[in-house]
Design a protein around this nucleic acid. Structure first.
Lengths: 229, 229
DNA sequence: ACAAAAGTGTTGTCCATACACCCATGG
DNA sequence: CCATGGGTGTATGGACAACACTTTTGT
């Protein structure tokens, strides 16, 4: 490839993925023990370096796949961190992604072998570099985004009950919701399909399973936004 | 500085700023004629390369200042574009920022000398590389963000009338609003201070000037969001 | 039978919309 | 004196929070 920009300084480019899961009523994050210096052995968000002919998106997909074995994970770019001193090991820019995965589907062998483990949001270990900022950034973004485009489903199994979804929302926003109103509101969006099957694990009566219907898109108007358009 | 990452491939890092202004009832973008190959002479978003010891934020500030002479511009990072073929001149990652500036304050000499000019949103020239994507990304982001955190003021002069603000919103969302309701809604947020002065340019009666009170922050709850928290 | 979760119905309040109406003033 | 944009008041409907209520079924 030609290069018109020979004189420009170049930078290492990392991709860090904040991986969210939902398990047992709590939002969790997947973190790993670093295998590389510096800060070898400390906890960090999962990351890697951008390869020569790769897009950032593809790098994020590769990194998540290498750790979890999953391919169809909800991934979105968040922010690029660039403080010259953010990584004591060298000048590295890092583009952060967040990932939402169904915690019942990932490859436990793989994550185990890479020394990765899940942490609840309020029980996080201390992290290297600016990874705490990345995490705050990711959490805040998900909270915001979920208000106008429900992405919570990505954290639940294919089939889930309304109560499960409510627990997820409650964990995400750190507050409880009235279950009658939650149910009505969520269903009013018309994004869920009720299945015939019931979940009998949590109640005697049983709760219907639902699945998200990806063909259906929420209408902008039905989410109350700053201005009603 | 030490470098633990000698073996990693490195990349040129650009910063591109989508600069918005508001003039004569229309949102406008500041674009420049490229002085460098490739695509010398074509229109593009204003950009530059990240320097060795610079953060992306500082690079964006520098780039906007160099073009407009302004220092206190509202700037926010948007997205990092990374397609290996996005720039035919070499492998360059580009982090996009959007900037909102008060169009009555910028340095016209400077922009003139750099062959920059303002374009209305619906009269844009064709742009190089992925700059059209950057622009779409910026516009969409501002529309979204403005719903829950009003940033429109940043595009208006220090003193402005409610009607001016409404025209800005109408231009931003491409639709008209009922002026009675617009006025009530905007004022209900309590973010504006009414001045004693009136603008007599647009009506005989005159319209009060307002200024945004930066000490006052909108309460999350007062913006109707996806879930009321 | 009853506990406990699932799910429905009802009501008051708030708020966005629509629109009628008054105000001020330059020509 | 009236046209024009600035600004206020009010009626209506829809959405949501609160909460009372019914359904189902395993023990």
């Amino acid at each position: 490839m030609k290069n018109f920009y020979q004189k420009q300084h170049t930078f290492c480019q990392a991709v860090d993925c904040v991986i969210f899961g939902f398990d047992n009523g709590a939002i969790k994050l997947l973190l790993i023990h670093r295998k590389l210096e510096p800060y070898k052995g400390k906890w960090s968000v999962i990351g890697g370096f951008l390869q020569k002919k790769e897009t950032l998106d593809n790098a994020a997909i590769r990194i998540v796949h290498d750790l979890t074995g999953l391919n169809n994970v909800f991934l979105e770019q968040l922010h690029t961190f660039s403080d010259p001193n953010r990584d004591p090991g060298g000048r590295v820019l890092s583009t952060t992604y967040f990932a939402l995965l169904k915690i019942n589907e990932y490859d436990k062998e793989k994550t185990k072998s890479k020394n990765a483990d899940w942490f609840e949001l309020n029980k996080l270990p201390s992290l290297i570099f600016d990874h705490t900022d990345m995490l705050k950034c990711a959490l805040k973004h998900i909270q915001q985004k979920n208000r106008y485009q429900p992405i919570g489903f990505e954290l639940l199994p294919e089939k889930f009950t309304i109560t499960q979804l409510q627990k997820l929302y409650e964990s995400l926003y750190g507050k409880t919701f009235d279950s009658a109103n939650f149910r009505k509101k969520i269903l009013s969006y018309g994004l869920l399909n009720r299945l015939d099957e019931k979940d009998k694990n949590h109640s005697k009566r049983g709760a219907f399973y639902y699945c998200s219907d990806k063909k259906k898109q929420i209408k902008q108007t039905s989410a109350n936004l700053f201005f009603h358009m």
